[in-house]
């Protein structure tokens, strides 16, 4: 299918973006375009204006300061995966990036686009949840910090307002000795995950002192499995943790898998991912 006629603007600064957003209520921001353009071609949405933010300087840097890693929203998946800083300080993200779709998509797609789209079966939203990230949303009124726990609102829905631009993702440096684990089940490499788990925690000896289990593909947006992590923090067995997952997750069926199968997959992943964190 071919997209309907749509306006296009490529501003050079954020204030220009804000002005365009305020003037055009159904405008859409164009970052990597890996979901947006396909959606336009499939006529799933019909905005009047695309605001291309690729010409805005300074949105694609990864920096560390004051115990925080700041990732510019325009950072492409490929650059995220290749960043030595990310590899050293946020290995969870480095582990997740190779699972994001295919090379051609990683080459263009951005972390900001992925988070703003909030596809429930994608990797980076779950990583940000596991890592307790904070989103920076900018508008003509200034910057607003949104904790990840309130950022994801529903299926393809976030706390971002129409006049806001997601400009950066800030992630606190994990405590020393932190461990991360990532795995997802896909029929073919690069597919949307059937079920995935991004985990970040701290273990002292054989006991967990901190553990975030961030599941994706099991709800409208990534979900923290609080009861399962509580069970593990309380030194209960893996089987106990797997059993209580049913109270954390209520996946819905997909074309191939029933809800029960997806819960089974989530349990298997829990065992495997936690075992891999050493």
């Amino acid at each position: 299918m071919k997209a309907s006629e749509v306006g296009y603007a490529k501003p050079a600064s954020l204030p220009e973006v804000f002005a365009l957003l305020e003037k055009n209520e159904d405008a859409r921001l164009l970052a990597g375009g890996q979901s947006l353009i396909a959606g336009l071609n499939m006529r799933l949405s019909n905005p009047t204006l695309l605001i291309d933010i690729n010409g805005i300087a300074g949105l694609n840097t990864i920096t560390e300061s004051g115990g925080t890693i700041r990732i510019g929203a325009l950072t492409r998946h490929l650059d995220l995966g290749a960043s030595p800083l990310i590899a050293a300080k946020l290995p969870l993200i480095a582990k997740a990036v190779p699972h994001i779709a295919h090379m051609a998509i990683r080459n263009r797609g951005t972390i900001g686009g992925s988070l703003a789209l909030s596809d429930p079966a994608t990797e980076l939203p779950a990583c940000c949840l596991a890592l307790n990230a904070t989103m920076t949303a900018a508008s003509s009124k200034g910057e607003r910090k949104i904790p990840v726990k309130t950022f994801f609102k529903g299926l393809f829905e976030t706390d971002l307002k129409q006049n806001e631009v997601l400009t950066a993702i800030e992630i606190p440096l994990p405590a020393a000795g932190s461990l991360s684990g990532f795995s997802e089940l896909v029929r073919r490499h690069g597919d949307y995950a059937i079920v995935g788990l991004a985990a970040q925690g701290v273990r002292k000896g054989s006991s967990w002192s901190q553990l975030n289990l961030s599941y994706f593909g099991v709800g409208d947006h990534p979900v923290l499995a609080a009861n399962a992590s509580e069970a593990l923090l309380a030194d209960k067995s893996m089987a106990d943790a797997q059993a209580v997952l049913a109270s954390d997750l209520s996946p819905s069926e997909d074309a191939e898998n029933s809800a029960a199968t997806k819960l089974h997959f989530a349990r298997v992943l829990l065992g495997r991912v936690v075992a891999s964190m050493s």
Binding site: E256, N257, S258, A260, T261, H264
Partner: peptide, 13 residues
Amino acid sequence: VTPQDILKAMGKV
């Protein structure tokens, strides 16, 4: 043959 088919055949789901 999907993973779910195999799990069902094995009585796991």
